[in-house]
Structures are given as C-alpha cells and as structure tokens.
Design a binder for these strands. Structure first.
Lengths: 356, 356
DNA sequence: TGTGACCCTGCAAGCGATTGCAGAATAAAT
DNA sequence: ATTTATTCTGCAATCGCTTGCAGGGTCACA
C-alpha cells in the first residue's frame, strides 16, 4: 500500500510515516508516476480514461501532491507572500482576508509576513524569509519600501504588486486619495456648508505614502474649486485613531462662535471620534455639525456616519487577480502600472444641510 | 559564479534564473555541499574555521537555503499553518499577529487559512490545503472542529494546538471564561451593586465553544455566591457587536424604575454599545449605571471602559511556544492538554459604586 | 611510535514530484 | 495495406538540499 522502496535508512517525518506518494498512486492505477503527475495537473496529454482511473486511485488513497516536491521540480510554489505593516487593524486585515479567499480559489496558499516586530523583524523578512524560494509572488500592503527593499524584491524576479501606493516601479492598486477627499468635501459643499474643517495629517504625519497629505490636498482643492478660502485653523492633524479624532474635534468645536459647520475626517475612526466629541460638547450631529469620514469602517453604520467607502477586501482580491494574470505563462493583457480602485460616497445620517 | 551544471535542458523558474544554490557556495568556500549544509544549520559537526568560511561565502553570494529542497530532504517545513474563522476581527487578528511574530523569531513562516469563504472553502482547507505537506504543525484559532476535521488533522500526525477551546483531544489554550465572568461580576458586586444585568449569549448563541454560555454561568455563579437572585429579565442576549450591545442596553435601561445599576457585557464591543445607549438615554456612566466588559478592546481605553482583559497576542505567542516544544526532537516537559491563559481585571472609569 | 577515540569532511543515496524526449499505440490519409 | 500524423505513456534526469556512513586527520595516552 505504501512506499516499498528498497528499505533504505528511513528518514524524514516522524515515525509512523505513512504518507501516500505519487508512486503509490501510480502502482494502484497501473501507470507510471509521470502519467499520474500529468493526470492530476490539468489532465492534458493524458487520455480521459487514464485520467479518470488515476483520479479515482488518488481519491481512494487520499493522495495529495506534496507541495515541496512539486515546487522543487517545477519551480512553482503555489504560494504567495503577503507583507503587511500590522495585522491588527481593520483595513489590513480586510485586505488580507480578501486576498486569502481569492488565493484559495486559485489553489494557492498565503504566507503572511507581518512587520510589526520592528526593524529587526523587517530586515529579516526582506533578507531572509522572502528569499527562501517559497513564494511565487509578493503582495505588499500599504508599505513604503526602501529602495533596497524594492531592489531585493525585484531581484527575486517574481511578480510584485502593491496595495496602496504608488510604489516606485511597482504595479500598485490605489484609490485616488485626492479624489476621495474631494468627493467627501464636495458632498459637504453641495449641502451648503462653507465652513468645513478637516482632521487629517500632513507631511509630518505621512504614515504610508502621502495618503494623509493627498487627502488634505483633495479637501483643499474642493474648497478652492468652490471659491471657499480654507482657514488655517480649520485643519487639525491627528493620528488616525478614534481618540485622536476626538481630541482634534474637541478643539475645532470648542470655540462657540468660531465653530465650523462640518468636519471632514480623513478616516472613519477619526470621524467617529469627532461625533463623540460633538456629543460631549452638547452638539447635535448633523444638526450643529456634519461629519464625514473615509473608509466605511465596520462601525460607520452603527454611528450613522456618512463616508467615502473604499473596499479593502476587494483590493486584496484584485491584487490576487493581477498576480494570477502575471503568473500565467503568457501574460495576456497586462494592466498598467497603476490600477485605480473604486470608492463610493455613502450618505448616512451624519451629514445634512447646515442650520441657517 | 552560478551553477555550471552540464547544461541540461533548462527548466523551472523564469528565464533569468540566476539563483545561487548550495553547490555555488560549496565551490566558493572550497568544501562539499554536505559541509555547507551542516555549517549553515546549527554548525554542529563542523570546525569553527570551516563554518566561518562557509558563512562568509554564503553571505557574500547572498545565498539563502531553498526551503523546498530543504523541506523535501529533511521533512521539516519550517512553516506552520494557522486556521482562523475570520481575520477581520480584532481578536483573531491579534492572535495571528502574536503567532506571526513568535514564529518569525523561530525562523518559521506562517501560512494563513481563513474559513470566511463558507463551507466549500472550509472543506478545501481541511481536505486539501492542509495535507500538502507544507506545514509542520497547525494552530486552530477559535474553531469548533467537527470530528471529521479533527481526525483529518490528527491523520497528519503533526502537532496541533487550539487557541480558545477546549477542543476534544487537542491541546488547547483557553481562558477560563467562567472565571472571567465571575471576576467581572464580582467587581460590580464589590462596588455594592445588587441589580446587575448581563448582556451576552446563551446556548442558542454559542458562537465558539460555550464561550457565551460560560460567561453567563460565571455571572450567575458570582451573583449566587453573593446571595443575589438574578432576575430573568436582567439578561439580554446579543450578538457580540456594538450595535447588539446598544440595543440590548437600551432595553435594559429603558425602564426607569426597573433599571439595573450595572451591566456586565460579555464583550467590550457590547459594553461600548451599552455605554452609548446609556448616554442616549440621558444616563451617566458610571453615575447612573456602571458598565464592564471583557477583552480590553483597543477602544476600551478611549471609552474609559472597565474590563477583564485577555491577551490575544500573547495567546498566539504561547501557542507557538507550545508547538516549538513539541517539534523539538525530544519533547521535554509537555504541558497538559489544557493550558490556562491569564486574564486580568482592568478598572477604568466606567464602573463605580451605585448611587444610593 | 603505536593505537584507539574523536572530530571533520566528503560521498552518494535519497526526499517526491515534473517534464523533455522518444517509443508505442492509435487514427488518418493515400 | 503502407505511410504519416497524432495521441498517449513511460524512462530517466533533474530540482536543491539533508544525512548515514565511512575515510582521513589529529590528538592523547600508553
């Protein structure tokens, strides 16, 4: 039933090592291992009858191809690496989840690399883990890669796609942050607001790429286009957390007569913080102040928060599709370097016309 | 510099396949591949001088062991599989993050399996992905496994540890949910509360294992021990979301004179929902009603929520430690089947003595 | 100087697949 | 019926590394 090799010194695995291998299946089906291999992978160049027989044998024996042996021989790993800065955050977790599901559909595994562990960990990922020939391609999520790191990845000569970018010389999926911010701001303007504050980040706060800056620019562009002069003190930098948004909003709304009638927060978490701050100040949302965010965070619905949704899960899926495209022997219609991802205004109850 | 094999038909990898292999290093260092292998893995049975030379060569050539070849030959994958029901949730993401970091320290990769994709996806994970000989061990996070699934995992003859359990016949890390609930409830009792409501789940709501039920029992046990009779209508089932907690609390607190003075919510998200519900009803926390949760969610601090913390990240790390223990050639001090994980009462501002 | 005991190192046989090449079998064409 | 084109299938080399075994050195002790 199992391997009946000429009993060489047994190695590998633990003692009760009864793993079915391709030779067992071949024997069982009465064909060569070559045929088994072909039958089980695509079935080309194998007669239907044989293929069926092999498949039956494999199923009966509960045989599953050893990915190591297969990879070693073929050079295909059926595995892709996903690198994220943190996992413990709604956005990243969603991207990974989306990628994971898409990969699973394609029969690929997902190996996760998490950079939370600090610089040392980061280095080891790029100088060691990713070079182990374990992945066919890499998805880098919201990562600012140093030149050195990009070089290393390119040296792998493996497809690489970024989510959130752009990343110099790397195919990247991005939402147009500038447009997102403009859309949110324009929504407020369309409602009649003219005194619109912004909670976000600027250069100094640029976490990944220029996301905060871009959103700020979008906000400013929308105001400018509407002929509204942005006041300097209607912008507050914050750290993209609920608490940060809360504090910033407290400041913005704390000045009774100087108060903006609307706040555009660069993330839903900050927007939620703003809503809570408004309440604590005795203000009504959207009566006294409208609030809009970005993300469509899971709590957005609960808080009735208007927002510009981006779809992280879908971004993960799309990244996988792009990679699958490139992994195919003859990449057909390669997409351009930068792929724009959709976003969408979702109006809930937190925005309304300003009171006159 | 690179492989100078007798130019057989080139296969595997893409064209520019300039991967340094062990033979290159051996040549460069003037030793055999066997010695390179030994020098690079532990360095036992190799003279210090040789080892240094080999290490230098490897570094100079930028050589990294091919994990496939290594795994195939040794039977060790240096990779472990982590199976989670969702990723898109604070708790799971934290466990995975903890595990990932610990694994990285041990030089292991983490392959993620996510069961979000429904039954079909779940089946394929257990009947295909995990059997590919790609992992040395499996960590199952908060999974209720069917007998069939446990059987399959055991058939792998690979270490398996669960996080959140218990899981029949599987070494599992668990927090004692009953004790957690009792601790939270006792805190309220110690403050002088006698009318303590509970938002959680019961049998019908049992998501994973009996977590909701156990927490409910803990609550009841604490009340009973204090000689307090639990009122039937002081318990509200909810779905462990903020919105669910909000609604449940609205009901509990909506009855002016029948109102409990404290709420123990089985999760921080529900506790936060409760706090928001209380505010919406014009009640002050903790003045009118104390609220305590479980988890120490990232927002707990922001809301000043008292809670019983569990440490998911630490749970992930611990799971890895346990596995590493078992993967060692001679498992030394095996831990028992069930390993209790720590939890801790964190008192913030949401709990106080009841008003008299 | 002889002689185990030990320590290093190399040889070569795997690990379990994939795949180019060529021969066998079958079908199509003349 | 013979040749040619087409499928199928098997042989055997290979992927890159690990490791049991044995040979060669070195060293200490007698």
């Amino acid at each position: 039933m199992c391997s009946m090799s000429t009993a060489p010194p047994t190695r590998g695995g633990t003692f009760g090592d009864f793993m079915i291998n391709i030779a067992d299946v071949a024997r069982h089906a009465g064909v060569s291992t070559a045929t088994v291999s072909r039958a089980l992978s695509g079935g080309h160049h194998v007669s239907p009858a044989t293929r069926l027989r092999v498949e039956a044998s494999a199923a009966q024996l509960g045989y599953v191809v050893s990915s190591n042996a297969s990879s070693l021989a073929s050079g295909r790993m059926k595995n892709i690496g996903v690198v994220v800065p943190f996992l413990n955050h709604w956005f990243f977790a969603s991207v990974v989840e989306g990628a994971q599901q898409a990969l699973q559909r394609h029969g690929y595994d997902l190996t996760l690399y998490n950079l939370t562990g600090g610089l040392e960990a980061r280095r080891s990922v790029f100088e060691h883990f990713l070079l182990r020939q374990r992945v066919d391609a890499v998805i880098a999520v919201s990562l600012e890669l140093s030149e050195n790191e990009v070089a290393r990845l390119h040296a792998l000569d493996k497809p690489l796609v970024g989510v959130g970018g752009p990343l110099a010389g790397v195919r990247t999926l991005t939402v147009d942050d500038l447009a997102v911010a403009r859309l949110a701001t324009e929504h407020l303007i369309a409602l009649g607001h003219t005194r619109i504050a912004h909670i976000g980040g600027d250069k100094a706060f640029d976490l990944d790429f220029n996301l905060p800056t871009n959103r700020r620019f979008g906000y400013e562009a929308a105001l400018a286009a509407a002929g509204i002069v942005a006041r300097r003190d209607d912008f507050r930098p914050a750290d993209f957390t609920t608490a940060g948004g809360y504090q910033a909003a407290k400041q913005l709304l704390g000045r009774p007569h100087e108060r903006p009638t609307a706040i555009f927060a660069a993330s839903d978490e900050m927007a939620i913080g703003s809503i809570l701050a408004a309440r604590d100040l005795g203000l009504v949302v959207p009566g006294d102040v409208s609030v809009i965010g970005v993300d469509d965070h899971e709590l957005a619905d609960f808080f009735g928060l208007s927002t510009v949704a981006q779809f992280p899960q879908q971004q993960g899926e799309k990244a996988v599709e792009v990679l699958m495209q490139e992994l195919r022997p003859h990449p057909e219609s390669r997409t351009g370097l930068n792929i724009n991802m959709p976003f969408e205004l979702i109006v809930r109850g937190s925005t309304a016309r300003p009171m006159v």
